[in-house]
Amino acid sequence: MFLSPATLTLLALALLVAVLLAILAAVGASLLARMDGASLPAALLRAGVAFGGTLTLLTALLALVAGVQPSQPERVVLTWQQDGSLAAAPVGETATAVLVATGFVQDKQTGIYRLSGDDTTTQARAVRETGRQLDAHGIDTALQHPSGRIAPAARAAELMSPRAWTWVAQSSRSLQDSA
């Protein structure tokens, strides 16, 4: 993932703050342990535990916050649709140009770009080329399934393409001929 210099600077500052807070927690834990009558080794042990626990918690929180980012110019998400097509909502002009160049067509009503799934070989080539071109521009590509589920009552005929049914019919004929 490509990070801008400003983002890297903010992450470095946040990590520095996390380390300083962990040091403060360690100092506080050791002082409280000494005030409670603990020996120096026991107080240092409590300080180490406090430092490690605080730093682990803060870096995990930092990773969570830094990782949750909405759509951004550095990432294009391709989502499989129930009809076999792929949909993408690019954020930047570069990503849009790459999608159009590799065969995606914009839906005028929604602004979403779609790649037909009628010919899966052509679709696979287009997706591979899309990923290669986006990567050359420093843009990540993610592929995901739709969030909704196909209704359980959906029949196999509705789920299979006409091409798949042709293959099934030819296979069953060849099995009947061989028997």
Rank of each mutant, 00 (worst) to 15 (best):
L58E: 02
P90C: 12
M35F: 06
E74P: 07
L20R: 12
T141R: 03
G37D: 12
A179F: 11
V65G: 00
G111Q: 11
P146N: 04
G28N: 14
P73S: 05
V98C: 01
P5H: 12
L8T: 14
T7Q: 13
E74H: 13
A60C: 14
Q170H: 04
T166I: 14
T56G: 13
A33S: 12
E158P: 08
G92L: 03
L55F: 10
L40V: 13
A6P: 10
G138C: 03
T110L: 04
A47K: 06
P90G: 07
A18V: 15
L3G: 07
P146I: 04
E93M: 01
G92P: 08
L78T: 12
F2A: 08
A47D: 06
I112K: 07
H137R: 09
I23R: 10
S147Q: 11
A25Y: 01
L64P: 03
Q72K: 07
A124P: 02
T79D: 12
G37C: 03
E158Q: 13
G111S: 11
G28Y: 05
I23E: 15
F104A: 01
L64D: 03
Q144M: 13
E129P: 09
T54S: 07
L159E: 02
L55A: 12
V17M: 09
D36F: 00
A153D: 14
R163F: 03
A33F: 05
L61P: 07
L13H: 00
V98T: 03
P5G: 10
T94F: 00
L57G: 08
T130A: 09
A60Q: 15
T54L: 00
L57Y: 05
R114E: 03
L8A: 10
V49M: 11
A87R: 14
L159H: 05
T166K: 02
I112T: 13
Q81D: 11
R173I: 09
P146Q: 04
H137Q: 06
M1H: 12
G111K: 11
A95F: 01
L57S: 09
L57D: 04
S172R: 15
A14Y: 00
A12P: 00
P5V: 11
A63L: 14
W165E: 15
A89Q: 15
H137V: 00
G37K: 03
A179C: 10
A60Y: 09
S30Y: 08
S30Q: 12
V49A: 04
A153F: 01
L11H: 00
D118A: 13
E158A: 11
Q82R: 06
E74D: 12
A25L: 09
A179R: 04
T7C: 08
T56K: 02
H137G: 02
A95M: 02
L57P: 06
E74V: 13
Q106A: 10
H145N: 15
L115Q: 06
G52Q: 02
M160D: 07
A6D: 09
T56I: 09
V68G: 00
E129Q: 14
A60I: 14
D36Y: 02
T130L: 11
V19Y: 02
L40Q: 05
S172D: 13
T122Y: 04
G111Y: 10
D107P: 07
G48E: 11
L99G: 01
Y113Q: 09
D177N: 07
A18E: 12
A22R: 06
Q170T: 12
Q81F: 00
Q144C: 08
D140G: 01
V168E: 14
